[in-house]
Design a protein around this nucleic acid. Sequence first.
DNA 1: CTGTTAGCGCATTCAA
DNA 2: TTGAATGCGCTAACAG
Lengths: 351, 351
Amino acid sequence: MDAWGRKQPVTIYDIAARAGVSPATVSRVLRGATRVAEPKKTAVLAAAAALRYRPNLMAKDLASGRSQTVGMVMPELESPFWGRLLTGVERQLRACGYHLLTMGAPDADTERQALDLLLTHQVDGIVLARGTLPYREIKEMVGDIPAVRVCWWEGFLEGGGIAVDNREGARVAMRHLLELGHRRIAYVSGPMWQADASARHAGYCNALAGAGIEPDPGLVVERDFLMEGGLPAMTELLRRRRDFTAVFVGNDQMALGALLALERARLRVPQDVSVIGYDDDTFTEYCRPPLTTMRQPVQDMARVAVASILARLRGETYALPSFTATLVVRESTALAPAAAAPRPARRRATA
Amino acid sequence: MDAWGRKQPVTIYDIAARAGVSPATVSRVLRGATRVAEPKKTAVLAAAAALRYRPNLMAKDLASGRSQTVGMVMPELESPFWGRLLTGVERQLRACGYHLLTMGAPDADTERQALDLLLTHQVDGIVLARGTLPYREIKEMVGDIPAVRVCWWEGFLEGGGIAVDNREGARVAMRHLLELGHRRIAYVSGPMWQADASARHAGYCNALAGAGIEPDPGLVVERDFLMEGGLPAMTELLRRRRDFTAVFVGNDQMALGALLALERARLRVPQDVSVIGYDDDTFTEYCRPPLTTMRQPVQDMARVAVASILARLRGETYALPSFTATLVVRESTALAPAAAAPRPARRRATA
DNA sequence: CTGTTAGCGCATTCAA
DNA sequence: TTGAATGCGCTAACAG
């Protein structure tokens, strides 16, 4: 059965028998904790190799009480932005000998389930990417296990989260546009009930105010944070009015959709209207025109997220640094068309 | 300690005590397997709720021998294409009450580790996305546990994998180009050591031959399957010669990079050169021009992958259907420029 | 139907 | 150092 390489209930007992030691000793050398006499050690290792032993994590975790796994719940598994965070977290974790269990949670309900499942899986720590649940509820669920919230200020590790200041980021983006001479600037927003979207909106309004410009609700549209949202958002904006010369788009994915809408409307970017995105997703460098955007230090945030969790796991404290988004100027923004020669307003399609 | 909501070693014994039944009964009602008297049942449920009981999967899995988890190893966690597969698999799995453990494995070595880790995690089944390890090796590792290989013909479940016929897909793409009158068609390839890249190359050559066109090695470039690969690939192609009127790009990501290179070279798409990609990634619909591409039925493949694994888990057999890529015509391909008016070859930048 | 009794595979006391 | 014994939390035969 066994010699034939069939089923594999190869346990430390098998190894112990083959190496002529006790199971406890096998456990010890396999885990490299306490010292074991060299000869026995090699014997055990040899036996393990010969038997093609594969430890049973379930048993190990159950016995030790630790799972060496941290869970991560994110809005979507498949996303240019969250994907980068995922990759970063996974890399860091693996480098530290931890495993990652991911879970996609698009809405509050799924998020609750996901969190619950992770806890059930006995994860040692949790990384929550943005998330929509209120602080209190999450805190209550995770209890004492180390957790961090990324891309959301209201964290639950030592009182703070890991995120860039979206308000400030939006302000920087707006300043760029303002400095280029734009006055009528539209804002294509993600769902306002999501903190990042509303924070960016706040920054947008704030920047406008700072420049002495009256915010115009008619210049703001709200759609999903997706390419599929950017297109209709921009289309709607163009339907309403075409006198804006620049638009700040809530994230790069929407910006891509917006770019297409603009082209469909025969408007050139950046000659006719400047577009600035947010996130600095990979594709922004390759789309045409390459997109000016606000870069979020995703890798750094991932690194800090993992580091803070592992630190807490070791009983240490960890001070969360703050992050800022930086402007990456590419080719989708340019000087505002001369005020003297305003782009002729086209006749609106409806009424 | 417990009443204060502190640490949570709430076990079925606690519930049993509170509900006045035996642990076994608790286990039964919690798992809904065998029938239990209604009164006891409600008592248990109430106790569980009151105690905020959360099952310990480690223990459950250890005892039952099943983990209710399937593992998936993919080339990269963050990718427009693999991301869709991941999402699809996760959704299917969750719908069936299973969990997903993912692992990114860019190279053979990491892939081995990933597989090993999944096995160690006692996953009930495995989904391998493409993968680079040879069939024999994988088969030997996974042994009898249900596994499927997606996007690769040489599978290990009932002898086959789940994939579209890349050779045929490439042929269809080429036929489209050929029908538009293109004769000199370049091929921007992914790493040829990856089966999908070489299969598509084969289809490319085959289609050319079918049209009586001599394949020209000078029209083929090989780079990574990424946006970052597409740009230099196309640049290199243009450096070599500029007499092709169309290019078949190995995947959409590369195509996006290629599009940028083309624009940098002042070549218009599709007027000057037609471009066709592969995969039908989400962004293809939104980039400019929207990309003509070969759609892979990712969701269907994900569904089948999961279904086949669960079927095998139940001891049933499952016949793997075959999949085909379908042409999605958008705006990056057009009739070949009239042969009578060949685009003037520009002076090469170097020698 | 339901309680009792054994482990699952491993880590971890406690002696030796 | 190392072996023997105990238990992690739960499921799975067994009886009753």
